[in-house]
Computed example of a mutant assay.
Amino acid sequence: MPEPRKIIIDTDPGQDDAVAILLALASPELEVLGITAVAGNVPLALTSKNVRKICELAGRPDVAVFEGCVGPLTGELVTAEYVHGATGLDGPDLPEPKMQIQAQGGVDFIVDTLRRAEPESVTIVALGPLTNVAMAFRDAPDCKAGVREIVAMGGGFFEGGNVTPTAEFNIYVDPEAADIVLRSGLPITLLPLDVTHTCLTSRQRVEAFRAIGSIVGDAVADLLDFFERFDEEKYGTDGGPLHDPCVIAWLLQPELFSGRHVNVEVELASRLTRGMTVVDWWRVTERSPNVHYIRYADSEGFFRLLTDRLAKL
Results as ranks from 00 to 15, higher is better:
118 E>W: 11
117 A>G: 10
65 V>I: 09
89 L>W: 07
132 N>K: 11
32 V>D: 04
103 A>W: 04
73 L>Q: 09
68 G>M: 03
82 Y>C: 06
35 I>R: 12
18 A>N: 02
11 T>H: 12
126 A>R: 15
77 L>D: 06
53 K>Q: 14
109 F>K: 02
57 L>Y: 02
66 F>S: 05
100 Q>M: 13
53 K>E: 13
116 R>N: 09
23 L>C: 10
68 G>Y: 01
74 T>M: 15
27 S>W: 11
76 E>G: 01
82 Y>K: 14
75 G>D: 13
53 K>F: 12
99 M>V: 05
11 T>F: 10
13 P>Y: 08
122 V>D: 14
127 L>P: 10
96 E>I: 10
94 L>W: 12
114 L>H: 13
27 S>N: 08
27 S>R: 12
112 D>N: 14
132 N>V: 14
134 A>R: 06
99 M>N: 01
52 R>Q: 11
112 D>P: 03
122 V>K: 12
55 C>N: 00
61 P>D: 00
38 V>R: 07
135 M>P: 00
116 R>F: 07
40 G>S: 13
79 T>P: 11
101 I>K: 12
39 A>M: 01
17 D>C: 15
18 A>E: 07
50 N>T: 03
35 I>D: 08
77 L>R: 01
114 L>V: 02
120 E>I: 00
109 F>G: 00
81 E>M: 01
50 N>G: 03
74 T>K: 15
93 D>K: 14
24 A>K: 09
94 L>E: 01
103 A>P: 07
36 T>R: 11
45 A>S: 15
33 L>G: 09
47 T>I: 10
127 L>N: 00
70 V>F: 13
40 G>C: 09
75 G>S: 12
27 S>K: 11
93 D>W: 10
15 Q>F: 13
120 E>S: 08
45 A>G: 07
91 G>L: 11
108 D>G: 00
95 P>Q: 06
58 A>V: 07
87 T>V: 00
108 D>S: 04
129 P>Q: 11
71 G>T: 05
103 A>V: 05
70 V>P: 08
135 M>F: 05
45 A>K: 11
45 A>L: 14
106 G>A: 01
